[in-house]
């Protein structure tokens, strides 16, 4: 029994090894540059967040978060929180249909679609139809990039973990739904990994040295969804919540 089985086993092992060699060979034909070493996991698909819209999704959405602000930004944040308690939102740029910016966007109020192609990891957020292109082709950041809402992102695979670095982020953005402010200088790093086939984790670290005394960090969780599609979201279609002259979010009554 053992002899025949071990022969079968040996043949199977050979086929297995040959298959791997073949697969690696094919892989190197289709992959290029930084991705050639090993095939990264495939997270292409639609994902929805788990937890609240706070920076730390384990903190309920109706609770304000504490951030290690310097004196200047603490005074600003305290004013924002005090106004909110009185029913006045004073740092609510998305009410005017401004994109949320990379930090708040990654809370993912609506689903996101990940599309992996050679050299690029693309995240499409349904909210505001925002797109992040994370270049995984080995390129570097441009020198002194013009600041944009989502910045310039480069990523590299370390085994089955995707490490992303983002610079060139527009200043005075927002951290969470409550209008917690960011400074002029913002740097974001992310570590993405999967836990099983249907759970994705993103450990996001945000530095804003002119506003935060130290970096802040949180882990976001996403679940794979095969039952939904990404829908169109055009904020300017019928926005009745623009901020008033004092910068306070309102509601336009009796439109049309």
């Amino acid at each position: 029994m053992n002899a025949s089985h071990s022969r079968v086993g040996a043949v199977r092992s050979f086929i297995g090894v040959a298959g791997c060699v073949l697969a690696l060979g094919l892989g190197s034909l289709v992959a290029s540059g930084a991705e050639a070493a090993s095939a990264p996991p495939n997270w292409t698909g639609i994902w929805t967040r788990v937890g609240s819209l706070n920076f730390d999704p384990t903190i309920p959405g109706n609770k304000n978060e504490d951030f290690p602000y310097n004196a200047k930004y603490k005074e600003f944040y305290d004013r924002i929180i005090a106004a909110e308690a009185k029913g006045l939102a004073i740092n609510d740029k998305s009410a005017d249909c401004q994109p949320p910016g990379i930090v708040r966007m990654m809370a993912m109020v609506y689903p996101m679609e990940i599309i992996q192609t050679p050299g690029q990891f693309t995240i499409i957020a349904e909210w505001e139809g925002q797109i992040r292109r994370i270049f995984t082709d080995g390129r570097k950041h441009p020198e002194d990039p013009d600041p944009t809402y989502n910045g310039h992102s480069i990523g590299r695979w370390e085994g089955e973990t995707l490490l992303v670095d983002t610079v060139g982020i527009l200043g005075e953005g927002i951290i969470n739904d409550h209008g917690a402010p960011l400074g002029e200088q913002v740097h974001v790093t992310e570590k993405w990994w999967a836990e099983g086939a249907d759970t994705l984790k993103n450990e996001i670290t945000v530095e804003s040295p002119d506003a935060l005394l130290r970096p802040i960090k949180a882990v976001k969780t996403f679940k794979r969804r095969t039952d939904i599609q990404i829908m169109e979201y055009i904020c300017t279609q019928n926005n009745r919540n623009q901020t008033n002259a004092e910068g306070v979010t309102g509601i336009e009554l009796k439109k049309r």
Partner: peptide, 8 residues
């Protein structure tokens, strides 16, 4: 609370 604050 996505698009705007619901504080109002």
């Amino acid at each position: 609370a996505a698009h705007h604050s619901f504080a109002m």
